[in-house]
């Protein structure tokens, strides 16, 4: 019996990687497809890319699946590794895909400094609101008051609005979508892959197995329905008061502007000082 294969699978993934490590209902599959679709629609080649990920479920999005250079790093540090990859070979399209725990908790400092530096990498932060791989511990994105493995009597801390954080740190491209918005993710990724600066895309993604369980928010489908019902486009959200935005997910492209990009700035600087020397 011949195998039926998705055309993106044949074109962009490693043939010998036969299985996924994702749980049934996980949002990672939607994100994998959105990324590959963006590359396909842009007509880009996987050899133009280097994918860097950290530790956590979302770090498995590019690694080892994508048939490109892939660097699977330590917990929290993929942005720091990616900064070196980009400065070492500026012509590469360097993409980080990792989770909210990886990039906003243990690696939060690298995230804000990469945004401030405007290093020309794309960061796809998959926000599932929980530490999923280790079994439902509190993340800086876990809603206040829910019972998690490490806060069995309820979380006491407020959540990070990560996109706003990255925006405040100076990133020239910031977007947030949910896994209910695969086409919009692809559209934003196409802009990110072709823009010069630090581009950041937060994707709110369902984790039925851990997040769904600890927050009692139900199945993958229930979570997707919540994303559908409670997502508000940024343009509309700007006209609403904070009270009516409670419990809503503000989605869309928050900023898209041009700023001098670090690796290009370095190339110019080197040319300038080397000329001055000779």
């Amino acid at each position: 019996m011949s195998e039926i294969m998705h055309p993106l699978r044949m074109k962009y993934t490693r043939e010998h990687v036969k299985k996924t490590t994702n749980c049934p209902g996980c949002g990672n599959g939607i994100i994998v497809q959105a990324i590959l679709r963006a590359i396909d629609e842009l007509g880009m080649d996987m050899d133009e890319f280097a994918f860097v990920s950290g530790i956590g479920c979302s770090a498995w999005i590019p690694s080892p699946l994508f048939n490109a250079d892939t660097l699977h790093t330590t917990h929290g540090r993929p942005i720091a590794f990616a900064t070196g990859v980009k400065l070492g070979k500026p012509e590469l399209n360097v993409v980080v895909a990792s989770g909210d725990g990886d990039l906003a908790a243990i690696g939060g400092n690298h995230l804000i400094h990469a945004a401030r530096r405007n290093i020309g990498i794309t960061v796809i932060l998959v926000n599932n609101g929980i530490y999923a791989m280790t079994g439902g511990q509190t993340a800086p994105t876990t809603p206040r008051g829910v019972n998690t493995t490490t806060n069995p009597y309820g979380t006491l801390e407020s959540v990070f609005d990560i996109s706003s954080l990255v925006l405040a740190a100076g990133a020239p491209f910031v977007a947030r979508w949910t896994t209910y918005h695969p086409r919009q993710i692809t559209s934003s990724l196409k802009k990110a892959f072709t823009s010069r600066g630090f581009s950041f895309i937060e994707i709110i993604s369902q984790c039925p197995v851990q997040y769904g369980k600890v927050t009692k928010s139900g199945s993958a489908l229930d979570l997707l329905k919540h994303y559908k019902k409670d997502s508000i486009k940024i343009d509309k959200a700007r006209t609403m008061d904070p009270e009516s935005l409670k419990g809503k997910i503000v989605v869309g492209e928050f900023v898209n502007e041009q700023k001098p990009e670090l690796s290009a700035e370095w190339t110019e600087l080197k040319a300038r000082v080397m000329e001055g020397r000779s």
């Binding site: 860097v52 660097l71 720091a80 690298h110």
Partner: peptide, 17 residues
């Protein structure tokens, strides 16, 4: 870099470049 962790990470990245 913003700290020494970033320093070692970025030189590993650049070495792979």
């Amino acid at each position: 870099t913003e700290d020494e962790i970033s320093a070692i990470s970025s030189i590993v990245g650049a070495s792979w470049s």
